[in-house]
Amino acid sequence: MNTLLELSGVSVSFDGFKAINNLSFQIGEPELRAIIGPNGAGKTTFMDIITGKTKPDEGHVLWGDKATSLLGRSESQIARDGIGRKFQKPTVFEAQTIRENLAMALKGDRGPLDVLFHRKTPAGTSRIETVADEVGLTKDLARPAGELSHGKKQWLEIGMLLAQDPRLLLVDEPAAGMTPAERAHTTDLLRRMALNRAVIVVEHDMEFVRRLDCKVTVLHEGAVLAEGSLDHVTANQDVIDVYLGR
């Protein structure tokens, strides 16, 4: 298992408030990792830093086999490097059909001229259909995304990530607002995706994390508090203190 992404000594502050404080973290490929932590632990900022939305004040973010730095690369470059992100609130293009949504995410050239003269290929079409099948949206391909239920929008977004074919997937609270059945389906999806790529899941719901059955990292006040299996970290006194209050 090679190290795919490594953060070392990363700090970032907003107006004096240290959102991330000397954080070090690494993940291999393939791997499934859950990140938990109380509100304000810096989970969202952590993802913002990896995806290039926030520039850290200090520290390194190294990516891939050649350990290239991600600092100074734009969001779109980082996305093209192979990092996909799923937002907490499902963000799909509601005015467009499922097929268009997936087509947009499909791995391929991203330059304006390539896109302008882009032709549909049978390979692309079949890839879209495969992904749609995987997230259970085959019947809905021609429908506008806005008509989907909340849970289906979550799946569509995961489907878009699949279509993107990233090496690292950042998933922010995928189970929020889902029925138990949908949750089970989502857990399966994530675990299957983690078979050949790195997946980081940020989640509040302990039950959901338990079902993922993977290594857990606990964030607190912008730094790693504990790391290990879920049972290991929940036995950690610091973690108990943080979650239950002193």
Binding site: S74, S76, Q77, A79, R85, F93, M104, R110, G111, Q164
Partner: peptide, 8 residues
């Protein structure tokens, strides 16, 4: 969202 899909 478009940006995170890798489009500049």
């Amino acid at each position: 969202r478009v940006r995170f899909l890798g489009y500049h």
